[in-house]
Design a protein around this nucleic acid. Structure first.
Lengths: 169, 169
DNA sequence: CAAATATAGTTGCGGACGCAAATAAATCCG
DNA sequence: CGGATTTATTTGCGTCCGCAACTATATTTG
């Protein structure tokens, strides 16, 4: 192996990596802007409402919702604050475990989500999905599963984010 | 078209979209944590140093660097503050245009980058690239170019982020 | 040339988020 | 049962970042 391979990404690797971070950056900011402009919802807020809407009884425990929304527990608390203040979500004490809170989508929240959904769906289709043929989209989705498995497995050991680092340097 | 297709993503579309945001979230945070833990550099800082290192004379104008690093001008100013304070980068007034600033990687900065690079490269390979065969990586990279083109084109019109929204709702 | 305009970068401000500590309730164990 | 421990969530705090306003310099135009 040439020395350079030990320290830097090879050109084809760098192209893959930088394409990914650029796609992420452009796609997320574009979808966020469209949602904020037209519906006053951030993409992050939209995803919270969407997960609640899909859930049994349109309600979820805070922890479960945080995991689905890929945000920390404290981050979710604050995201919900804004949505609760606007009446799109209500929080109830969980009857079976009074430590827990249940976030529930209100009728108003469901309505706002349904108003915003066409914008979000159109954006995802326009900027991501319609760039692919049906087969390419399946390929793209299938390809992402491998790194996802690797990452989920690496992040697994006891919530100790760094256990995989021990002795690796 | 069924009504549901107008408002919500179809299952295969939703799987693609959610796989993407999850891959992004897990990959970025994992790479960031590893870099911070072992080298005291955030992933964002690492990318700035890497772009400078690759540039002619290891120096770039602020605007050019901001564009490469996918960050706003003001965001770049603050990212560099920290790096300048640590002596990894210096800023010089641009001789040909005294409004402009040139960010230049110092020897110390290059050294710190070279120390951190193996961690970053190993992370990108472990969590992204090694999940693919050579052919799959090429496919993955090639697939991303289509949405990237769409997004770059959409963001193009005069820096008016929203021009593409006019009359679309 | 001088005023008007455009461009480069920084600063004030406020929002979003994660970590660690705090709080509260459930569960375990002697 | 009652204290120790674990779990669920929130709060304090610091960081990062983008937008809009501002400063300084360059360019255009009459």
């Amino acid at each position: 192996m040439a020395e350079s391979e030990q320290f830097w990404l090879l050109p084809h690797e760098q192209l893959a990596w930088r394409s990914f971070i650029k796609l992420d950056s452009l796609l997320m900011s574009r979808l966020d802007v469209e949602l904020v402009e037209r519906h006053g919802l951030s993409l992050a807020e939209y995803e919270v409402l969407a997960h609640l809407s899909e859930a049994e009884g349109r309600a979820l425990r805070m922890s479960a919702l945080a995991d689905l929304a890929l945000v920390s527990r404290s981050g979710l608390t604050r995201r919900l604050e804004h949505l609760v203040a606007r009446g799109l979500v209500i929080k109830e004490i969980c009857p079976s475990d009074r430590r827990g809170m249940i976030a529930r989508l209100t009728e108003l929240g469901q309505g706002r989500l349904e108003e915003a959904a066409p914008t979000h769906v159109a954006g995802v289709r326009r900027y991501l999905i319609s760039a692919f043929s049906v087969g390419e989209l399946q390929q793209f989705t299938a390809l992402m599963q491998a790194p996802l498995s690797e990452l989920e497995e690496a992040g697994r050991p006891g919530s100790d984010c760094l256990s995989s680092l021990k002795g690796c340097s």
